[in-house]
Write a protein that binds this DNA or RNA. Structure first.
Lengths: 341, 341
DNA sequence: ATTAAAAATTAACACGCGTAAAATTTTATC
DNA sequence: GATAAAATTTTACGCGTGTTAATTTTTAAT
C-alpha cells in the first residue's frame, strides 16, 4: 500500500516495469496481454492501487462502460424491484449501471434522456412512462443510443423489449376467479398512468367474452402515481354507489387493490373467499406488500428476474454485434393464490 | 437546427463569433460574461444545439458537477422517498445527482464508495447501512471526499448530518399511547438492520421509566431487510407465546408493524382503539403504505423534506466554502394518529 | 538453432476542454 | 474626450488516456 505519488497510468506503467500502451491495453481487456504481463500488472495493482481516470478513458473510447437504467417511478416498489434486478444483471455483464427515475413526470423523463446522451452510454435500458408526448422523444433517443425497452412496450422502438405478457395475466386471473366463484368486475383508473393498464383491460374483456360473461368495468378518477389513494377513495365511492356488477373485483394492479382493500375495511366489507365474506378482491403484479395486506392479496406475479435478465441480454447481444434472435419477449405471470380471492 | 458538424467548443465558438475561452467561461458560469456576449452564445445555442463533452470538462475541472447519493436499501419505500427528495434538492442546487443503493449489502456499499471516488464528485450524501465493518471504510471515504451523512448518524464522521430525532419519535409515541390507554410493549428485531433501531429502543426505555412504567421489549429473530416478513412470523410467534406484557405494541418501525398487523389478522386478533378491539399497534416512520394498512397504522412521521433539504444545504455550504453553523440536525417527528392505536 | 508469429515498446498524435498570462478591445466614469 | 476598469482575445500548455505505425523483443513452432 505504498502509493507513492502514482498519479497516472504513466507512473503506474513505470513502477510495473511496462510501457503505458501495454498497461492501457490491459485495462481495456486483461486478456489482451500475455499472462506473464498480466501477472506483473496485477502484482503492481496490489502494491499501488491505481485506478485509471474514467473521464480520460471515456473521452476517447468509442464505447464507455456506462449503461443507463430509467424507470418511471422508483418509489413504486414494483419498479424498485425491477430496477434492482436490471441493475444486478448489468453489473454481472460488466457494465457500470446508473439508475434514474422519472418520478412520474414526463418532463423529467426527457431531461434524463438528454443527460444520458452526454454520458455516451454503451446502452440504455428504459421502462418508458408511456405518455404520448414522450413517444417521439424516446423514438429519437433510440435512434441515437442503443436502447432496450422493458416493462412497457412501444412498437417499433429500440433494439428489443422484455416485459410481462399482460394479456396472459388478465386471462389467468379471470379464469381463476370464474372457476372459483362469481365472475369479476374490473376496477381501473380512468386515465391510467401506465400503458400496461390498457392491455390488461382489453385482455379482461377478451377473457370474459371467451367465457361467455359480460365484461363490467368501473373507471375511477384520479391522476398521477398515488394509486393506493386513488384506489381507496375512488374504490370506496364506487362501493357506496354500488357500481360493481358483481362482488368479485379484479383491480388493474396491486397498488390499486391495496387502496381498494383499505376502502373495504373502511366500509366494513369483509374481503375473502370464505362463506362469511362479502367480496373477493384480486390484483396483478405481486407487489412486495401484497403478501401483507389484510387479507393477503391474490394476484398474478410478474417474473421480474426473467424480464431483467432478458432485457440485459438483448443489450449485451447488440453491443457485442450479435444478431438479436427474438427482439420482443413477453413473460407469463404466475398465479399467486392468497386469501383475498 | 442546422447542426453542421459542430463537433467541439472550438467549432461552436467560431459560429458564435467568439473565442473558445470565452465560450468556456460561459458554460462554467453564464454570468461571468457580458450580457451581450451571453445573448450571442444563447442565440447560437438555439441554432446549433451544442453540448460540451462532460468527460473533457470533468477531466480538468477541480470540481465536477456530480453528487453521489447513497442509500442502504432503495426497495424500502421509506428510503425511496428520502432519496427522491434528496435528489430533488440536489438538482435545485445545480448538481448532477447519481443515485446508488447498497441493497442492504455491506459489500455493495463499499463498492459504491469505491466507484464514487472515480467520479470525483463535488460531494456525496450517504445514508450509511450502519454495519460495523463498514464504519472505517466510510470514515476513510469522508476524509477524502466532502460527504454529508443523513438518516443514520455516525459520530465524528463527514461534514455534517441531517436526520430524524429518533429519541423524540419514541418519546412522542410512548407518551401518546400511555395517555390514551395501556402502556406499550416494544417489538423489534434482535439484530436490527438499521442503527436507528437502537436509539429508538433506548428512547422507549427512557420514556417508559420517565412515566413510571416498566419497559418490556420483545426481540424477534430474523436477518436482513425483509422486515415485513420478520414482523409477521416473529410477531405472530410472540403473540402465540404471549410474550407481550401488554396489549399495546409499539414496533420499532412501520415495516415491522405492517408485518405484525398481518400476524394479528392471521390470528384473528382485532387491532384498533375501539372497545371491541384486542390490541393496539403503532409504528414509527410513516411509511407510504401505512395509511393503507387495515386498520391504518398510527405512527410518527419522519420529516423527509427537512432532512433532505438540510443535508443538501450542508453540502452546498461546504462546497461554497462557507462555515457550517450547525453540523448535525435532528428533526422532530409528527404524531400521525390513525386507527390502529 | 532458425524462423515466423505474437507481444511489447517507442514515439507521436488525438481527444475536448480548463486555465493562465499577456495583449487587445470594449465599457464605464468623470 | 481622457482615463481607468472590465471584458475579451490570443497564445499556449496541461489533463490522462486511446490509438496507431514502426520497431524491437519475446515466444512458439519447426
Amino acid at each position: 500500500m505504498s502509493d507513492n505519488k502514482i498519479k497516472n497510468m504513466e507512473d503506474f506503467a513505470a513502477v510495473s516495469g511496462l510501457s503505458r500502451p501495454t498497461v492501457s491495453k490491459y485495462f481495456n481487456d486483461p486478456n489482451s496481454v500475455r499472462s506473464s504481463t498480466r501477472d506483473r500488472i496485477e502484482a503492481a495493482l496490489q502494491k499501488y492501487d491505481f485506478h485509471p481516470n474514467i473521464y480520460a478513458m471515456n473521452q476517447n473510447r468509442k464505447l464507455t462502460n456506462n449503461v443507463g437504467i430509467v424507470v418511471p417511478y422508483l418509489s413504486d416498489p414494483v419498479f424498485a424491484e425491477l430496477a434492482r434486478k436490471v441493475e444486478e444483471n448489468c453489473i454481472l455483464a460488466g457494465f457500470r449501471p446508473t439508475l434514474f427515475s422519472a418520478h412520474g413526470q414526463p418532463r423529467l423523463e426527457v431531461e434524463i434522456l438528454d443527460g444520458l446522451r452526454l454520458l455516451k452510454p454503451s446502452g440504455v435500458l428504459i421502462a418508458p412512462l408511456g405518455r404520448t408526448p414522450n413517444r417521439a422523444v424516446i423514438e429519437k433517443f433510440c435512434a441515437d443510443v442503443p436502447t432496450v425497452l422493458f416493462d412497457s412496450f412501444l412498437p417499433d422502438t429500440g433494439l428489443g423489449f422484455a416485459g410481462s405478457n399482460n394479456p396472459q395475466f388478465a386471462h389467468l386471473i379471470v379464469d381463476y376467479l370464474c372457476r372459483t366463484g362469481e365472475y369479476p368486475s374490473f376496477l381501473e383508473m380512468r386515465t391510467p398512468a401506465n400503458p400496461n393498464a390498457n392491455r390488461r383491460r382489453q385482455a379482461y374483456i377478451a377473457a370474459m367474452e371467451n367465457l361467455g360473461f359480460e365484461p363490467s368495468i368501473v373507471k375511477i378518477d384520479g391522476e398521477g402515481w398515488a394509486f393506493e389513494e386513488i384506489g381507496r377513495s375512488g374504490g370506496g365511492k364506487a362501493l357506496l354507489e354500488k357500481q360493481f356488477a358483481t362482488n368479485t373485483i379484479l383491480c388493474s394492479n396491486d397498488r390499486l387493490a391495496i387502496g381498494f382493500l383499505t376502502a373495504c375495511y373502511e366500509n366494513q366489507i369483509r374481503v375473502g373467499r370464505g362463506p362469511d365474506c362479502d367480496i373477493r378482491v384480486a390484483g396483478m403484479d405481486d407487489h412486495p406488500f401484497s403478501r401483507f395486506t389484510c387479507p393477503p392479496l391474490t394476484t398474478v406475479a410478474q417474473d421480474f428476474e426473467s424480464v431483467a435478465k432478458e432485457a440485459v441480454s438483448i443489450l449485451v447481444a447488440s453491443i457485442e454485434g450479435r444478431e438479436i434472435s427474438k427482439p420482443s419477449t413477453f413473460f407469463d405471470g404466475r398465479l399467486v393464490m392468497r386469501e383475498s380471492a
